[in-house]
Design a binder for these strands. Structure first.
Lengths: 372, 372
DNA sequence: TTGTAGGCGTTATCAT
DNA sequence: ATGATAACGCCTACAA
């Protein structure tokens, strides 16, 4: 019925907690008659001026207004608790002060950090943001794009799209709205992101420095651009270390916890051996850790493991998971800022790369050289 | 500068990853002239009918329209890629098909599950939701309420508000918009939530059944209604077990990871002793686990610990954290459903209580009775 | 079966 | 310094 509810742990449930609902007093029905909202007209009448004047006063237009009038208008507006109708304004001015944010899933720490960054910054500039959870489904994406278009959003931030053939959004948008993409993609919009390739490469070098030679790769789906980007970094890291790339060591997954666990389990079953895992997500890495532990492998002694994206979880598990951190809040914030800039006719760079940082924790501790 | 960026772990940073930005080709400037959007008028012209007809066809009004006309209009709309202007519609119909969601912080799993529930359900009914991250700040709440009011939202979902004096929102809203609250609050809106008191009480009983007698409480701020509710459950659980309530065992915190850690650290420094901790949030519990481990206390042997809200982290730490799970997605979904119902004049219950479930894991394993 | 006209709440243009 | 008026894009009586 609902895809977002976690399955209960095996046999862990207990005490179903008091029953359900309780239909108390059958609702306050229709709240009588709603007092009509005040409009410029109402305010004008009360202040004894024209609507034009009200509009001018409330919008701080030119100070060619008598102080007395200003005062009267403000007073009337206050008294009536007048709030301008943003939709009428949008209709008239042809800008909605609204930005759409397309996101695979707000439940993912990576993305809700982006969301916060976007929301905070949008708010600062007087913009409202509409969140669209696409679940990486092309049809949902299309539906949302149409919705955003009907809402006449001034701009759209694309996120996590980046699939081989993600051109389905290309013509639907643009024209009117300003678009910015976060992360790798195939569209011709300005973009912002990190050096994914370099980050993974650096991480691999770190593993090698710790004495690892057979480094497996726990990746995403081959079609995802972000996967391709990171895989390139993985290969570059190996090459730089003089290690031959072995395709059988690359395990695809959906980068979820369970996905990571399954991938590693089946790799182990298949008899694969490795002394390190380079994962393209913390979640998958966590799942991998589970699989390793269950297989009796010790971390980091027998297998080192490196995550990516630095989720809050990584510091809580044991051993603490090494990871790569990206300025995710800034991704969202900057994307919003760029849209605002474009809207104001200011030039924006076609692409921006923000710095990453390796976070070295215990899961990738160097191999101790045994006395022999 | 930005409050959402985690501090780097102590001395864990390394390799600052390529520098920053890269101002490439200086942006595609202004995208030439934007082709004007088609309107009903445009479509009507192309189809050779009146705007009325267009409107009727596109809104599937009565089938008293000739098939030929319908076809022509649809064709014209398709050809022009016509999308109705939702703001003009909202202005005319006086409904915005929009719902506001006030939430303390979307980063918290508890709340983003609510957000997903709300968003999914709103979308299903053709509504759009506007997220408002209040950070539990009264001033932000007020700002957002005004914003939502100007956006003429049809409904508002209040969340995590519940503070002693949260009546500041009371008069600002209502009148026009339908309001539903999730969780305890002091306002006269329909509400939905769980039996927080009963849940904590059951959890305490579980701890007692495991042989614990000195059960500390890791709570939130005294002013939060949710805290008061849960504290009552804590006391009820003790009382039912014949254990005297000891106020010194109640540790207030902000329920964050760090907050929980600090609270427990200072409790231990103060010489407090206990054989169990009942925490009002998983995050705080996680912090507490850290503090306990650093103090050399073993979990669950020396101290059992129980969380609340069942965040995804709880299953990943060691030992796995026992917790209480609430149907959070449903909270958001149901709240939205209620608003939609109210909007359609359907009656809704004044209050609804959804079931909780205890998730027993290793962190609250029963004390082994040592052979003596 | 289809068209005409007025108005939702605001702002911008042009007068005064 | 202030007002009358038109128009933004759409829907909906009311006509025909």
């Amino acid at each position: 019925m609902n895809p977002h509810v976690r399955e209960p742990d095996e046999g862990a449930a207990e005490s179903p907690g008091e029953a359900t609902t309780s239909p108390l007093p059958p609702a306050p029905a229709e709240p009588a008659v709603l007092t009509a909202r005040p409009t410029v007209k109402t305010v004008a009448a009360l202040a004894g001026v024209s609507t034009t004047t009200v509009s001018r006063v409330l919008n701080y237009k030119a100070d060619l207004l008598s102080d007395a009038t200003k005062a009267r208008v403000f007073e009337a507006a206050r008294e009536l608790n007048y709030k301008p109708n943003s939709m009428a304004i949008a209709l008239r001015k042809k800008v909605s002060q609204t930005i759409g944010l397309m996101i695979p899933d707000i439940s993912n720490p990576y993305f809700h950090q982006i969301a916060r960054g976007a929301e905070d910054t949008a708010m600062k500039h007087g913009y409202t943001v509409i969140f669209c959870n696409t679940d990486r489904s092309a049809s949902k994406e299309l539906t949302y794009v149409d919705l955003l278009d009907e809402k006449r959003v001034d701009g759209v931030i694309l996120t996590g799209g980046g699939v081989d053939g993600d051109t389905h959004l290309a013509d639907r948008l643009h024209e009117q709205a300003r678009v910015v993409a976060i992360g790798p993609h195939r569209l011709s919009y300005p973009s912002i992101g990190a050096d994914d390739r370099g980050a993974i490469q650096a991480a691999v070098l770190h593993l090698v420095a710790g004495g690892r030679r057979r480094i497996a790769c726990l990746g995403g789906q081959p079609g995802w651009l972000i996967h391709q980007e990171r895989l390139a970094g993985y290969r570059a890291g190996l090459e730089e270390s003089g290690i031959t790339y072995d395709e059988s060591l690359v395990m695809p997954s959906d980068l979820s916890i369970d996905g990571g666990q399954q991938a590693v389990e089946s790799a182990l079953r298949a008899g694969l051996s490795f002394d390190a895992i380079m994962s393209f997500s913390d979640y998958a890495a966590l799942g991998a850790m589970r699989a390793l532990k269950e297989a009796g492998l010790t971390i980091p002694d027998q297998v080192a493991i490196m995550g990516c994206d630095d989720s809050p979880l990584s510091q809580m598990v044991e051993p603490a998971l090494s990871s790569i951190t990206f300025p995710v809040w800034e991704f969202g914030s900057l994307a919003t800022q760029m849209i605002v800039d474009m809207l104001n006719g200011r030039p924006v760079p076609a692409s921006q790369v923000l710095p990453y940082q390796l976070r070295i924790r215990q899961s990738t501790a160097a191999l101790r050289v045994l006395p022999s």
